[in-house]
Simulated scan of single mutants.
Amino acid sequence: MRLPSFGHHTKMTVGLLGGSFNPAHAGHVYISEVALKKMGLDQVWWLVSPQNPLKPTKGMAPLGQRVASAKKVVRNPKIQITTLETKLNTRYTADTLKALQRRYPNIRFVWIMGADNLATFHRWKDWEAIFASCRIVVFHRPTYALNALTSKTAQRFSQHRLPQRQASVLKYKKPPAWVFLPIRGMAISATEIRNQMKD
């Protein structure tokens, strides 16, 4: 896939949902569509990772297979399936964001993640720099909310958290700025789907 091409003066807000998508499932689609609606995003780009540095390689399907699984579940034209990290030759979110912000200076990016990721976000490379450079929306996931909202990262950036009712204006805020959305939790996970496929 080629890198998305936009005019130099394009003004857009794009949500970025990174992950292994091993495989992609309805939960990924759900939070993408909620983000489009609640955040007023123009598009959501799925960044299908060549290999998450924090996840084992064992059991990881080939990139092409994971991209194919994503294309099967996505019907919304505003959700774009990408292999941008492969094209940009980046493995870490911090590096990916820097590269995207350089390439698309007129696009406002919003990083989308689940509460489980916020709970361990301090383990990510340059985690403070990520928060300082990109707007972030964190979606509730069953059983993770408490750990997420009491995490090292949530406490470090507590003064920059917006109330839920201001989710639609997050895109206009200068980072660091983030919001936690306690939406309807979806318990489905890629791990559960892989286990079901083995049975």
Rank of each mutant, 00 (worst) to 15 (best):
L118A: 02
A154E: 00
S151L: 02
K198C: 11
P23E: 09
G114Q: 10
I81F: 13
F131I: 03
V73R: 10
A35F: 00
E85Y: 04
Q43S: 05
K37E: 10
A167C: 14
L17N: 00
P176L: 01
G114P: 03
P142M: 02
P105G: 11
R156Q: 04
L41Q: 05
F21R: 06
A61K: 04
K37N: 10
Y104W: 10
H160L: 04
R102A: 15
A132S: 14
R75I: 03
L100T: 04
P163G: 08
T143F: 11
A129C: 08
T150L: 10
L170C: 04
K11I: 06
V67Y: 01
L63W: 14
I183F: 06
A70H: 05
P182M: 13
Y104Q: 06
H9M: 15
T82L: 03
T57D: 05
P4M: 07
Q101A: 08
P50I: 01
R165S: 13
G18R: 04
A190R: 08
F131K: 01
T96Y: 04
S151E: 04
M60H: 06
P53A: 12
W46N: 02
L54V: 11
R161M: 14
Q51K: 13
E128T: 03
M60S: 15
K198L: 10
K71P: 12
A145G: 02
R2L: 03
P182A: 09
R141F: 04
W124R: 02
L146V: 13
A68G: 04
T83G: 06
G114C: 10
Q164E: 12
R156S: 02
M197H: 07
F109I: 14
K58R: 08
G40S: 06
P4G: 05
A70P: 13
A24S: 14
I136P: 03
V44T: 05
F157H: 01
A99S: 14
A129W: 12
F131V: 05
Y30E: 12
V67T: 09
D126I: 00
A35M: 00
H122P: 06
A148M: 10
A177V: 08
W178A: 00
N89R: 11
Q80M: 15
K87V: 12
S133A: 13
R161H: 01
F180E: 00
A132C: 14
L88F: 14
N147K: 12
R135F: 02
T57P: 03
Y92I: 00
Q164F: 05
M197Y: 11
G7F: 06
A129G: 12
L88G: 01
Q101Y: 15
P53I: 08
W46T: 08
W46H: 07
L36E: 09
P56T: 09
H140N: 15
H9C: 09
F109G: 05
K78I: 04
V110F: 11
M1S: 14
I130L: 02
V138F: 07
L16F: 08
K71C: 13
S151F: 08
L149V: 08
M1H: 10
